[in-house]
Simulated scan of single mutants.
Amino acid sequence: MQFYKDENVELILGNCIEKLMDLNEKSVDMIFADPPYRLSNDGITCKSGKFACVNKGEWDRSGGFENDYNFNRKWLEACDRVLKDTGSIWISGTYHIIHTIAFALMELGYHIINEIVWFKPNAAPNMSRRCFTASHEVLIWVKKSKNARHKFNYDFIKEFNGGKQMRSVWEIPTTPKREKTFGAHPTQKPKQLLFRCIMASTDEGDMILDPFCGSGTTGVVAVENKRNFIGIDIEEVYLELTKKRIQQIH
């Protein structure tokens, strides 16, 4: 179901595997995907200095290894159909899912351009005292095949990085409160992270897709930088949040 549409943005309510079939084949220049990490297991974490439940929603509960893997394989296949041959995909995740997603991508013939480590200097402390404090996520940047001609705005990124080549470890704090004015998503990404991905691999006027739209950070950064955006989410409340954030830009 189409939830919202304007000149540069289309928000779609529903399961991304189904809704991606309604989009035109090879119509998207870049995809940013932040799929469920399957961490809603009734555990605890630290939030604002207090114990808090890690549960994010039923959409984040694991269905077991095989079901989780098949889900990831299906949405990747659906994304492959709409991605241009010159396009690329960014996928973020923790160790809980990112390695199986990388395996599925290689099964589909994709080539990994880069693996990026997003280091969070202000990550929440570990409450169990039985392992190291998790303070990073991994982003994998891939293209359809090793010989595919992907876009990389090298000069812009080098200039943005103070005239030096940008390395594959990005130190970026977690999402600041100022980016949660209209509400928040439990896995909301900071705009600074999306800015690097979008500006590195797209040009003005390109079409960007986020199949797990969440709070819409991908769309916000896309619109702020004169790109077009399609966002899909299974939760209406998060599409409403995305719409408010994007309308604020206009």
Rank of each mutant, 00 (worst) to 15 (best):
M1G: 09
Q2F: 09
F3M: 00
E10N: 10
L11I: 09
L23V: 13
N24R: 15
K26I: 12
K26T: 02
D29T: 09
I31Y: 11
I31T: 03
D34S: 07
L39F: 06
L39N: 05
S40L: 05
I44G: 08
I44A: 07
T45Q: 11
C46F: 07
C46Q: 06
K50V: 15
F51K: 12
F51H: 09
A52F: 03
C53D: 15
N55P: 06
N55R: 09
K56P: 13
G57V: 02
D60W: 05
G64R: 09
F65C: 03
N67C: 03
D68N: 13
D68C: 08
N70A: 06
N72I: 08
R73W: 02
W75K: 06
W75C: 05
E77Q: 15
E77T: 14
A78D: 10
D80E: 14
R81H: 06
R81W: 13
V82S: 12
L83P: 04
G87Q: 11
I89G: 05
G93V: 09
Y95N: 10
Y95W: 10
I97N: 08
I98R: 01
H99I: 02
T100A: 04
T100L: 01
A104H: 03
E107L: 14
L108I: 01
G109F: 12
I113P: 05
I113M: 06
N114P: 08
K120F: 12
P125H: 10
S128Q: 08
F132Q: 11
S135N: 13
H136D: 07
I140H: 13
W141S: 03
K143S: 13
K146P: 01
R149H: 15
H150G: 10
H150Q: 10
F152G: 07
N153T: 02
N153F: 01
D155G: 00
I157D: 03
I157T: 04
G163P: 06
G163R: 02
Q165E: 15
Q165R: 11
S168F: 10
S168V: 07
W170D: 00
E171M: 07
I172M: 06
P173F: 11
T174R: 12
T174D: 10
T175G: 12
K177T: 04
K180Y: 03
G183I: 03
G183M: 08
Q188P: 00
P190V: 02
Q192L: 11
L193D: 07
L194R: 06
L194A: 10
F195Y: 12
F195P: 05
F195I: 11
I198R: 08
A200S: 15
E204N: 14
G205N: 11
D210Y: 03
S215Q: 05
G219Y: 13
G219F: 14
G219R: 06
V220N: 00
V221Q: 04
A222N: 02
A222Y: 00
N225D: 08
N225Q: 15
K226C: 11
I230G: 00
I232C: 00
L239H: 05
E240L: 04
E240H: 04
L241K: 04
R245F: 02
Q247K: 14
